[in-house]
Design a protein around this nucleic acid. Structure first.
Lengths: 248, 248
DNA sequence: CGGTGGTTTGAACCAACTCAACTGAGGTGG
DNA sequence: CCACCTCAGTTGAGTTGGTTCAAACCACCG
């Protein structure tokens, strides 16, 4: 299971925050070089996760938060009755596991959607370091606050928006997250199957598929399997905001 | 608009954390007496809010988080198109405004549902104090983490549960929150109108009304206006969890 | 080349919505 | 003290967006 030594060392090297291309988006974003070294010292390297592998499982004892370096993951929470709810997708630079602090266990499993590399940040050491580094502390507060805000946007989506609006919003949000990370906001690959999109958006798989087909017919997007091209962003934004459209 | 002096002084006195009956639920829950004094010193007293008055409005610059002392509030976020989404209810000891840290403005208005008293906690001072008091810092992380967890439970409710399950869950959650605060978990008063419940749960007012009537017919609860009596908690819990019930 | 997992499409159904009317509780002023 | 108004809540009837069930399709892989 261990990687060859040379590969491991290479990963270790890449994983230093100072050389990480994500440092301007990630937790240490506001740190000076010196402070970043301190932060870097508490991070644990991890072997990459393969597609389908869990980073941790629902109910596992909370020990660390994790920053995504590359790849993507989903968070799923199992209900008592067996059904699962997908509550989040995580992309590079995002923090995973913050919702486990309070009860000292993770409230859902987090599973890699593709080959994914991760930085593990033991929470007790992060907390201690946040005592010394006010910028780090504030950044941590901000990350959690942002997640709260995003969750509430999601609640609005789930309780008020139509299926069309949900899909449009989903594509726009993804597009925006790719743009911020330096990728094309118009052309990207979905790392998750339709079923996951449906579960996340509170829709049946069939509905997701149908609506993507319709968007394609209307020349708003071009979809081929998991490849997405956004052809008409303004129209997509309109679709996400307003359903009512008195056809003139 | 100012209260008479004696009344004000009385309020100021009551508002000390050391004498507050909520201190075991609230932010300073883990603090020693000495530390609590420090915490207490940064808190600003506020005149009580009357029903319908906003604590702050959507878009206001973020300066403080607030702890509810008595009464209750709702958080509403206005959409571009004019519709509003109710994203949270706040009860005594709960923290309001944490989702404003990141963007330095409040993402929604928070409005009193009845006469409500509040402790204002300026965030910059809270952050500084959290540097000195590790227990306070952890408690703050926990509060945010708990809110994340609750939000995700809400997302599950909105995306997977039927109207009956939503109402049942809502009543159970309220019941539990009252119980933790030392009130009866079986008999309480809703401080919000049906419209707010509907908005929060992603249901039409009519649906809320109909389902409450049905629960009443089934002797699960007794509802009279805003007074609620839970008659059959086990049944209510069943209703909240499983819809499918193969009638034997 | 048959199998398997993911995706698409069609058709029927149903839970919750909308529209509409009614009821009841509170408040106000003549 | 009653007539009137208003607004929250309830109840009924018809409509519909998204679901479920069913079947085909496709692409990749051993």
């Amino acid at each position: 299971m261990l990687e060859p030594m040379s590969r491991r060392r290479s990963l270790l090297h890449e994983a230093r925050c100072q050389t990480c291309s994500l440092s301007s988006l990630c937790l240490p974003l506001a740190l000076e070089m010196d402070d970043m070294g301190q932060f870097d010292a508490i991070i644990r390297r991890r072997a990459p996760l393969k597609k389908g592998e869990p980073l941790f499982r629902q109910g596992d004892t909370f020990t660390s938060v994790y920053a995504v370096r590359s790849g993507s993951l989903k968070q799923v929470t199992a209900e008592g009755n067996g059904s699962e709810q997908l509550t989040n997708f995580y992309l590079p630079s995002e923090l995973v596991g913050l919702d486990g602090i309070d009860e000292e266990q993770y409230p859902g499993s987090v599973i890699a959607l593709e080959t994914t590399t991760i930085c593990e940040i033991p929470f007790d050491r992060l907390d201690l370091l946040s005592e010394e580094l006010p910028e780090l502390r504030v950044q941590l507060y901000r990350s959690m606050s942002k997640e709260l805000r995003d969750d509430r946007r999601m609640m609005r989506l789930l309780s008020r928006k139509t299926a069309d609006q949900r899909l449009a919003s989903f594509l726009i949000t993804l597009s925006d997250r790719f743009r911020r990370r330096g990728y094309s906001p118009y052309s990207f690959r979905l790392s998750m199957p339709r079923a996951d999109i449906g579960n996340y958006l509170g829709l049946a798989v069939e509905t997701v598929s149908r609506i993507l087909s319709r968007f394609q017919q209307q020349n708003v997007v071009a979809v081929s399997g998991r490849e997405v091209n956004i052809l008409d962003m303004p129209r997509l934004i309109t679709l996400a905001e307003e359903e009512e459209q008195t056809a003139s």
